[in-house]
Design a protein around this nucleic acid. Structure first.
Lengths: 242, 242
DNA sequence: GGGACGTTTCGGCCGGGACCGAAGCATTCG
DNA sequence: CGAATGCTTCGGTCCCGGCCGAAACGTCCC
């Protein structure tokens, strides 16, 4: 009974995530898009009424935010902190049972390029990160990234303003351990901005019902030239030792 | 019903954490020490039988590890990933309700110096981090830290070998958002090593039943001279604008 | 050996909450 | 306006799991 404070609220949060239906909804929202109550019900595999209750509780606890639009209600994760917590739980869940590649061959598209909350992941994201490091635009070490002098210019040319006086405490460039391969890709504000620009330019497009990203013909060229990707970046092991 | 894989195991993990009694035990273990079943029962405020059940489930799910020693059983967090997940959940729990300093004045010792899983936190840790940055031994930015050339020497002199060819993928220097103040302190392997050395040298000592650290007379001197701490490092706001 | 202590197992109680069917609002469209 | 659609509220069922008392097991000490 020393300091029992703050211990119980983490239990509330965790128990909210600790239900199969809700966890599935949250995992679906890790895609970064806002989803309607109906879509979330579908992801969770429960009826609309049940879903409604779940969503009410999660928004009440500030895990989600709602935005009503016509007769739809769009839900999204309330903050990067929530995404990070879910990510951390996924990491723990993945390391428990010793099945390292049990996910199956089904989702090759996911392994190639997908969204991870608000940034890109998959081999494309790894190739981009490797490339930025190789060109000296980014120093990637020990779980973080630092934008170099030359990087500032590069990202600015690419349409990303990094100077922003940071009203938010959100880190500029975190890294995120990739789920398919085992190497870090770019997350944080920089990661989000990269995804935004790539979507703006039509280099990648979201798929309807999946976190996978479709690499367009335009993007195929664009990434290869601007980021100077190696020819074999689609290969699973590429980039391990340049 | 797109990709429901992996969603349900995170629910299992989260639901394990999502119980008040278990959450209290885990929070207690965030101190980094191994604790006996009895101590954990005390922290959780439930009987020994109940605790036993909880601990069995958590070790079964690889959240905890046990080590039996005589008639005691020592439990600790099974991995840094578990600690990180709990940390992330704490962050979410803290940002929900808008009470920023509700914790109370009681635990001044905690605010001054405490352990956070395996490294130091509190104003002492902040002062150390500030100091290392000021002296150019460390670059702290965007949620990560990089050890500079001069830092390599400094830490080596202090008894920390950083060269270790990293058999573990664990980041050398992560940062961790401090709970009392709002600034980052040093975590990761470097953070753990700093705490170890400080304990070795008798600069700080663990308190019996709390995460708070006691700063010894020796440590008072030691930190001040080796790390060149400013005179006012004990003040809550110190270091904000050097 | 006997007794104290730490921990686990068993059995039973009981409450919270996940779930669904049916009905009630709200919004959009014909 | 009425019908269709998306979502919520209400009422009721049911089961999972947290909790404790009692008792067994293992370990240390005298």
């Amino acid at each position: 009974m020393t300091n029992m404070a703050s211990g119980n609220t983490i239990a509330e949060v965790a128990s909210l995530i600790g239900d199969a239906a809700r966890a599935n909804m949250l995992a679906a929202l890790m895609g970064g898009q806002a989803l309607t109550a109906g879509e979330l019900a579908h992801h969770a595999g429960v009826t609309a009424q049940t879903t409604s209750g779940h969503l009410a509780r999660m928004t009440g606890a500030q895990l989600l935010t709602v935005e009503k639009q016509g007769r739809h209600r769009y839900y999204r994760l309330a903050s990067p902190a929530v995404a990070q917590a879910i990510h951390a739980l996924m990491a723990v869940a993945a390391e428990g049972p010793k099945r390292h590649h049990p996910i199956g061959p089904k989702d090759e598209a996911l392994r190639l390029a997908r969204t991870c909350y608000d940034h890109m992941a998959g081999r494309l994201a790894l190739a981009v990160a490797d490339s930025l490091v190789r060109q000296g635009h980014l120093i990637l070490a020990d779980g973080v990234g630092l934008v170099t002098e030359s990087g500032q210019g590069f990202f600015c040319d690419f349409g990303i303003d990094l100077t922003e006086a940071a009203p938010s405490r959100r880190p500029l460039c975190r890294t995120c351990l990739d789920w398919s391969e085992r190497r870090p890709h770019i997350a944080g504000r920089l990661g989000a901005a990269l995804l935004d620009r790539a979507l703006d330019r039509g280099w990648v497009a979201r798929r309807p019902d999946s976190r996978a990203l479709r690499l367009t013909r335009l993007g195929d060229q664009g990434f290869a030239t601007i980021f100077a990707l190696p020819a074999d970046w689609r290969e699973p092991g590429a980039g391990h030792r340049p």
